[in-house]
Design a binder for these strands. Sequence first.
DNA 1: ATAAACTTTCATTTTTTATTGAAAGTTTGA
DNA 2: TCAAACTTTCAATAAAAAATGAAAGTTTAT
Lengths: 173, 173
Amino acid sequence: MQLDEAKRRFIEGWGTLGSAWGVSRTMAQVHALLLVSPGALSTEDIMDQLQISRGNVNLNVRALMDWGIVRKELRPGERREFFSGEKDIHKVATLILQERRKRELQPIMRVLGEISQVEPSATTTPEEAAAFSHMIGSIQNFAGFADRAASTLIKADENWFLSTFMKLMRPGP
Amino acid sequence: MQLDEAKRRFIEGWGTLGSAWGVSRTMAQVHALLLVSPGALSTEDIMDQLQISRGNVNLNVRALMDWGIVRKELRPGERREFFSGEKDIHKVATLILQERRKRELQPIMRVLGEISQVEPSATTTPEEAAAFSHMIGSIQNFAGFADRAASTLIKADENWFLSTFMKLMRPGP
DNA sequence: ATAAACTTTCATTTTTTATTGAAAGTTTGA
DNA sequence: TCAAACTTTCAATAAAAAATGAAAGTTTAT
């Protein structure tokens, strides 16, 4: 397969994966394009390559910068801005994990905390209330586990991540 | 807070979380409703409680059964079907992990495998090809790690999961 | 201060995804 | 076999999300 064809397929596949994870297809495609482009790209480069409008590029590039996985690059003597993707996949994964933890795990944990204390009432048997509290409690436990796991991964450096963790994970003899 | 209000808030929160993870809001809400309902519910029960149509309930309940986190229950002497949610959160997490691994991780790994061999060509420098291959290779490594981690979690029993893994994950002194 | 070269915003349009509801299909009991 | 009681399907509709593009806003060089 030729390089251009391979890049095209990667961008398409990454876009599809993104939609399954609650990221817009275009945002994932812009990210993929920046991942496989050795240098930084201008807004126009991205418009041309993905065939999307200027506003759309601007929106998605800024979202990617919010996530911390794309950086703005300024070149001396050039007025326009260039964008480059973080190429270290471990960093990319870490930054995405961090962002999702903040945006999704924390809000649901807040809700769980708020609803975990149910008052007795005339229309509710103690058994119903207990079953509910038990369910919420086990979701909180699980979410707490996921949160600790995520924090640890975020803090872990790459060597620990690759050596210790992968050995642990590989099914033993 | 009273039980009904707490359930309502849980269903709403779970629905919001679902949309961030590529699951439709309604599917997540049906799941949440079944999680916090002690007994099994009929199609009509779900229609009433979530104010959605019969076809919509049918569609989402069948999707949840595909994921393995909702079961059909038949009662002797009753013609209609009842549905109940898997209450063990560890099992729910495991089943979801398994399903997403199958639906999302495996397709992208297939694409990565297909594009990892780029041919030399007139319009491509060896450096460009090498940079691309390196990027794809590190994504493959990472995806392989994620896949092994997911398989291990899926196979692990709850005790291992809770004791060994949580100890490992808790930030040490 | 001005104009050129860009970036950003946002009301509108397009596309995609989810929902409805009525009709068709299925199962069960008499 | 019929009809009642359900479930499933699917074409039409509605709702939500994403994309456009033109106008407004910035920055920089002269």
